[in-house]
Computed example of a mutant assay.
Amino acid sequence: MLRTTESLGRVRVAFTDRHGGVTTGPQGSLDLGRTDADPASARENFDRVRRRLGLRRVVAMHQVHGPDVHLVTPDDAAAWPEQGHLGDSVPGQARLPVVDALVAPDLSAVGPVALCVRVADCLPVLLADPVTGAVGAVHAGRVGLLAGVLPAAAAALRALGAGALTAWIGPHVCAACYEVPATMQVEAVAALPALAAETSWGTPSLDLGAAAAAQLTAEGVAVRRVGGCTRTDPDLHSHRRDGARSGRLAGLVWVT
């Protein structure tokens, strides 16, 4: 169920895997992404993760590969429904924020409330300042990296008073596996040189993790890397490996 968990002061982070849930089919039993297709299984899977981590609520987003950031206030967190992470797949609930980054000040006063990002090859990036309790969750694939979603999230956290930020870059498709057309590589590398890479079979690729680390370091953020290539590790979800049938893993960050 949990790929890894880490702590930094009052901050807790976790990344999930494909196991320990109730989803049926080739995507693995712990699919946290198919909320519309199978809301009952998604609800149970999220409930299992919440119980395992001791979370009161999980705030999620509808990710669209853009640079926009959504602020989650303590009032928002207090009013967030128990199944709010399922969005409007639950009758009567509002649609999830249509963004690729969530940020929040210290939410511990309203209980352990986690911000959540879901991926199946893209980068799940979690951000936190353990002193102020400001946290962020970011979905950063090739398009989002080039659009500047990580600097935007860091700036939003600074605006909340965050000082020394730490980022956790979670499991994602590695440079040795992320093959792209040569023209796409040239255009991407022109904007972010750290993206330049080659697959293990000698064709053009992109190194999302290296580019994210370079952007975050330039923003004064300390970077921690959580290992695992989604394409080659059978314990992780991968769209590149499994196509449309792939599930989603989650990265979660909260403050105790």
Rank of each mutant, 00 (worst) to 15 (best):
M1I: 12
R3C: 10
T5E: 14
E6D: 14
S7C: 12
L8I: 12
R10Q: 13
R10C: 01
R12C: 11
T16R: 00
D17E: 12
G20K: 04
G21T: 03
V22C: 10
T23H: 12
T24C: 01
S29H: 01
S29A: 15
L32V: 09
G33Y: 07
T35N: 14
T35S: 14
D36F: 14
A37H: 12
P39I: 09
S41N: 15
S41L: 00
R43E: 15
N45F: 01
F46G: 12
R48Q: 11
R52N: 10
R52C: 12
R56G: 01
R56N: 09
H62M: 12
H62C: 11
V69C: 09
H70S: 13
V72C: 02
D75T: 15
D75H: 14
A77D: 02
A78M: 07
W80C: 06
E82W: 10
G84S: 10
G87E: 08
D88H: 13
D88V: 07
S89M: 06
V90M: 11
V90P: 03
P91I: 06
P91S: 07
P91K: 10
G92K: 08
Q93V: 08
A94R: 14
V99E: 04
V99L: 09
D100R: 02
D100S: 14
L102Q: 01
P105T: 09
V110H: 11
G111R: 10
G111S: 06
A114H: 09
L115C: 06
V119F: 08
P124R: 01
P124E: 13
P124G: 14
D129P: 07
V131L: 13
A134E: 04
V135D: 00
G136M: 04
V138A: 08
G144Q: 04
L146T: 06
P151F: 05
A153N: 02
A153L: 09
A155S: 15
A155Y: 04
A155F: 06
A156S: 14
G163T: 04
A164S: 15
A164I: 05
I169D: 06
H172L: 11
V173Q: 00
A175T: 02
C177H: 15
Y178E: 13
A182I: 07
A182S: 13
E187Q: 14
V189K: 02
A190H: 12
A190Q: 15
A190C: 11
A191F: 02
S200N: 10
S200E: 13
S200V: 14
P204N: 00
L206V: 06
L208R: 03
G209S: 11
G209M: 10
A211N: 02
Q215F: 09
L216K: 07
V223R: 05
R224G: 00
R224W: 01
R225K: 12
G227W: 11
C229W: 06
C229E: 02
C229Y: 05
R231E: 12
R231S: 08
P234S: 08
P234N: 08
D235K: 06
L236D: 00
L236E: 03
R240L: 15
R241W: 00
D242F: 04
G243W: 05
A244H: 07
R245Q: 14
R245N: 10
S246E: 09
S246H: 05
R248P: 01
A250I: 07
G251H: 00
G251M: 07
L252Y: 10
W254V: 05
V255P: 07
